[in-house]
Amino acid sequence: MIYKSGNWLDELLSETVGKKVCVIEQNSAYLEDFLIDAEHLWQTNKDGRIESGIWTEQLSTQLIRLEASAVQADHQSYLVVNKLEDKYNQKQQTLQIAREMLLSTDKISEQHDYLHARLEELLSEPNGSLAAQQPVAQALSQTDLGVAILDAELRLLNCNPALRALFDDSQVELDLPPDKLILELFRAQYPECERIFSTASSWTGEIYWLNPPQQGKWLKLSIHPIKSETQRVQNWLFSVSDVTQIKYLLRRNEKLTHFDALTDLPNRQYFWQNLENKIKQNRPFYLLYIDIKQFKRITWSFGRR
């Protein structure tokens, strides 16, 4: 028996038009593939349900998003094909942001890695004062990554325009040059700082620069020692990029996944995550559970818009 609503199904599965019983033809390759699993389920005659996962179909005038389930219940077999709207859009939006964020992160680390590799190569060439080396200076002036080169005692030898631009803010009078400011932020925010320098290790992480009345900036900082052939530290290389935007996207993404779109209230996922965090703390706590009666009515009447 076939029940349907909406004429998209007539177009997708035209063989069902005007029929009570039919054989599904080859209009939707995805659905056809899903029917293999569905038939398996139906043949077992055990109650159960499987989902197809989301797919897209191009009809003559519209692009539709679908999701099917096959159900076996009380010796009856069902195939349900749902046309998704809100659910799809919400998922798409969330993943869009999440993936754009992955991309920016990839791009920034790619730049950092590249720069380190290049500079390490240039700086380890055995000819005297590195800061004066033409290729280094050129590479530095062109990159949009902030870079500072320091000597073994952490005195600045060279820094590029991009680094100055990161801290350039007409509203704030800087009382320290950028390299000193970075060091200060690093020392204040990361206790392991001294160990990095004393053991000549590399470090990558994020530092926060609060610059009222501005918003504050998140900076990705990489610190690399550059060693001579005898393994003595000759220079320190700092590279810095602004990741505030990524942080912001991350937060927006969390907001999308943890807050209800209709009421803007924290949702179930948020609740479970918080509960888990609480439990991890291993301390007794109270949980107050309030059930709002008939709240479904609100979701039903406003939730579909």
Binding site: A29, K91, R99
Partner: peptide, 12 residues
């Protein structure tokens, strides 16, 4: 423009 895909789409 980047528009991330969800699920599957089949083209012929």
């Amino acid at each position: 423009k980047y528009l991330t895909s969800i699920g599957v789409k089949i083209d012929k």
